[in-house]
Amino acid sequence: MSTTMRSVQTAGTNAVEVVETPRPAPGPNDALLRVRACGICGTDTAFLHMGGFPKNAHLGGELRPIVLGHEPAGEVVEVGGAVTDLKVGDRVVVNPQSGHSGIIGCGGSQGALSEYLLLEDVAVGKSVAKFPETVPFAVASLNEPMAVALHAVNRSQAKPTDAVVVFGAGPIGLGATIWLKLRGVRHVVVADVIPERLTKALEVGADAVINSATEDVTARLKELHGEAANALGQQRAGTDVYIDAAGVPAVINAAVNSAKWHAKLVMVAVQKPTDKLDLGGMLRSELTLIASQGYPTEIFEVTPQLVEHHERFAKIISHEVPYAEVERAFELALTPGAADKVVVTLGGED
């Protein structure tokens, strides 16, 4: 096994480079993972838009390059002498927040878009979870974003009797749609402006879709979910839960305009700054606004169902790109509408 490895790091605004770095060696409590697949997240592209990571994460200022990637799946190739619950050959997904040297791919010393990843103080159920050979590495790499999606659904407390609309048919919105249907929610609508994404939403289980670029969202929701009223008795859609996986002000306002009395709005997408929110409309519906961040408990709660339903989750992936073409993978991820979920795949060469 080589003593060096390749890693992908930021190289200025909207640019990446592959660099040669020392291959980490596991200590007694660690394991070494050969990364087989790693998804590209909106967080990765956000770092590229910035041109790096702030040297002072709280105060901003000068930027430094960082190794990217926090959605890995791979194979254990070395274990420390004190590790008892993992062995060479185990296939695992990773909690990127579990390492003591910082969050993987988000300012820590490591990134998962590397050929190898050091699993520090590794423990099954805390830092990694195993998955079987029946699940492709690329699909297993969805574990982390699907945990984000599940947390949003958990925060919504959607019931089987509820009617829900998900705004945004990207990976998180599609994941939320799957989780809602697996939860038994009776009717799930997905809204987006890209027809191909709406087609995919139907493929993963949405009951109906709305093209919000060409259709009146409130009118369609009334048609699909029936009519109700807000706190003032004004006619509104019968939708119980709105999930924002798009992150644009128009989505928030579409929810406010449609919301019945005591509807809920869950924000899981990173929000764009705006002063155009209709707060008075929220008041008229007593709309409950719920923020959803990360995955406090869900990171490995998703794994068994991801394994069981891996063919359904696989539909979320639009592009699998080999590591040798990682620049192209980021071009796809940085181009609006060009891709849904891009996963970089790595071979098994030493």
Rank of each mutant, 00 (worst) to 15 (best):
E298L: 08
P132C: 02
L346P: 06
E78M: 09
I316A: 01
V16E: 04
H262P: 09
A213P: 03
S258E: 07
N230M: 07
V248H: 15
V128L: 01
A152K: 02
S285G: 15
K341P: 04
C38Q: 03
A147W: 01
G51H: 11
G205Y: 01
V16C: 10
I316W: 00
T134Q: 08
S7N: 13
L68C: 03
T21F: 14
T4S: 14
T239W: 13
L32T: 00
G294T: 09
H151D: 10
I66G: 11
S109W: 10
N143W: 04
I104A: 01
G347S: 12
V189E: 12
A250C: 07
A73K: 03
I66R: 06
G247P: 14
L150P: 01
I40V: 10
F47W: 04
D207T: 06
G69H: 07
Y242A: 11
I178T: 10
T161H: 05
A213F: 04
L150R: 02
S101Q: 11
F330C: 02
A255H: 14
D85Y: 03
R36Y: 04
E215R: 11
L265M: 15
L198W: 01
L346E: 07
P65N: 15
L306S: 08
V165M: 03
L117G: 00
V94R: 01
G108S: 08
F131S: 07
H187V: 02
T288S: 10
A229T: 15
Q9A: 14
L119N: 00
E327L: 01
P273C: 06
Q293V: 11
V217M: 06
V190S: 09
V88H: 06
V164L: 06
E75S: 06
N230L: 04
Y323I: 03
T288I: 05
V342P: 03
A15T: 12
D44Y: 01
G52P: 08
H225D: 10
K276P: 03
L232G: 10
E331S: 12
A37R: 02
E120V: 00
G347C: 08
Y295L: 04
L287V: 04
T239P: 13
Y323G: 05
